[in-house]
Simulated assay, not measured.
Amino acid sequence: MDFLEVLKNRYACKKFDGRQVAAEHLDVILEAGRLAPTAKNLQEQRIYVVQSEEGLAKIDKVTPCRYGAPTAIVVAFDKNNVFVYPGEQRDSGIEDASIVATHMMLAAKAVGVDSCWINFFDPEAAAKELGLPDNEEVLMILDIGYAAEDAKPLATHTQRRELSETVTYM
């Protein structure tokens, strides 16, 4: 699929059919995350693929937003391995993990897998429930699977502002 078509067709799927994601598709998705750029190439992302009933039950304890996805990818980052920007007000953790997650989300669509970016949860509660190390912060959960037959994007999905409303040349 052409990249712009991936961007146009990808939407937050909120109803999955329950079929497990094909291993070869999951491999492509995870590889896309691995290839994502990170500040100073620190690669501080930590990716957890949750597919077991026990693991998915833990996801369900921290968010109502799994929507029946058979796989949840938890994207976290090592808080002790981030680049601190000049001024020391920000670091690369959230930014880098977001780039990784976005790469995986778009790769999923490119191979015919639907997804939903989930951030409706308490990151500390999620880390605790999943037993993650103290040095890791959960950024988001990416539900992935195949859309149910009656799943569809929001009615406003195709509505976009004109570039002139969001872009300023200086």
Rank of each mutant, 00 (worst) to 15 (best):
F3N: 07
L4H: 13
V6K: 05
N9S: 12
A12R: 12
C13Y: 07
K15F: 08
R19L: 02
V21L: 01
V21K: 01
A22V: 01
E24W: 01
H25F: 02
H25I: 02
L26M: 03
L26W: 00
L30N: 04
L30F: 05
E31R: 13
G33A: 09
R34I: 01
L35Y: 07
A36P: 10
N41K: 11
L42Q: 11
L42A: 02
Q43Y: 03
E44R: 12
R46W: 09
R46N: 13
Y48D: 00
V49H: 05
V49K: 02
V49M: 04
V50Q: 04
L56F: 00
I59L: 07
K61E: 13
K61P: 00
T63Y: 09
T63V: 09
C65S: 15
Y67K: 09
Y67V: 09
A69D: 02
A69M: 04
P70Y: 03
P70N: 01
T71V: 08
I73P: 03
V74K: 08
V74P: 01
A76K: 10
D78H: 06
N80V: 00
N81F: 06
V82A: 02
F83I: 00
F83L: 08
G87D: 07
E88P: 00
R90N: 05
D91A: 01
G93M: 05
G93W: 04
I94P: 00
I94M: 10
E95L: 12
D96N: 11
A97F: 02
I99G: 06
I99N: 07
H103D: 08
A107L: 03
A107S: 07
A108R: 03
K109E: 12
D114A: 10
S115A: 14
S115D: 07
C116L: 10
C116K: 08
I118M: 08
I118Q: 03
N119T: 14
F121S: 05
F121P: 02
P123R: 02
E124L: 12
E124H: 13
E124Q: 14
A125C: 10
K128T: 13
E129N: 11
E129T: 13
G131R: 12
P133I: 02
P133C: 07
D134A: 15
D134T: 10
D134L: 12
N135F: 11
E137V: 10
E137G: 06
L139D: 08
L139T: 08
L139I: 10
L139C: 06
I141T: 08
L142A: 10
D143E: 15
G145K: 01
A147V: 04
A148M: 05
D150C: 11
D150E: 13
K152L: 12
K152E: 14
L154T: 14
L154R: 15
A155V: 13
T156L: 13
Q159D: 15
R161P: 08
R161F: 15
L163F: 15
S164D: 14
T166N: 15
T166C: 15
V167C: 12
T168Q: 15
Y169I: 14
Y169G: 03
